[in-house]
Amino acid sequence: MANPKIPEFKADWKEGEEGRWGMAIDMDLCTGCQACVAACSMENNVPFVGEEMSGYGRQMAWLRVERLWEGEYPEVKMTPFQPVMCQQCGSAPCEPVCPVFATVHSQVEQLNLQVYNRCVGTRYCANNCPYVVRVFNWADYDRPEPLPNQFNPDVTVRRRGVMEKCTFCIQRIHKAEDQAKSEGREVVDGEVAPACAQACPADAIVFGRMDDPESRVSKLSKDGRAVHLLEELGTNPRVAYLKGGSNGNLG
């Protein structure tokens, strides 16, 4: 750990406004195709739970595409598709409530970490997450042979009784950082993308360094269309949603 500066009072504590890693999602471009959902699940060894369980609110995907409705037929409109994953809050409400430090803040990556093997399953973090993005392993879900051949060795396979959530594919971030370090340079913009951004056919999900003002994601996050989910709660989320019609200036 890189010698964290420990603040004395809450008011003093302020992580860099923008954080280190961030995401910008253009809701005008998102077509709701669920490629991100599938990609995330494949990358992160997310189990499938079956019809009954998934219908009972136990689907395990780390990422969901939301949509609501406005109006009534024929003036009915679907609200723009909105992929919602862990917002990697700078002041994450989930973190302080865990009694055993199973969800903590990474000082280096400025991400919200879930430590599976420390988790005892109180599920308080999930209750306190205003974005409802945490999923709990209610059971050891069956993955019959030979499906486990596909397990990504970079990602822990979680057992029952632990909480999990989107990690921004931290395994990929680490790989890119290691690579960059071995070449004596910084990670360049576009070098690393989590599975969802990588798969997104519409290029609606953009990922990158927030502390680099020149990166695509930084620019998009500062765009006039950018909003943060439940901004008013002061959680300092790292995912910016671009609302309204795209204007193409940063594509």
Binding site: M1, P4, I6, F9, W13, K14, E15, A92, P96, V104
Partner: peptide, 10 residues
């Protein structure tokens, strides 16, 4: 074992 949680002081 200093761990920062939720932007609260240590």
């Amino acid at each position: 074992y200093p761990i920062i949680v939720g932007g609260q002081p240590l």
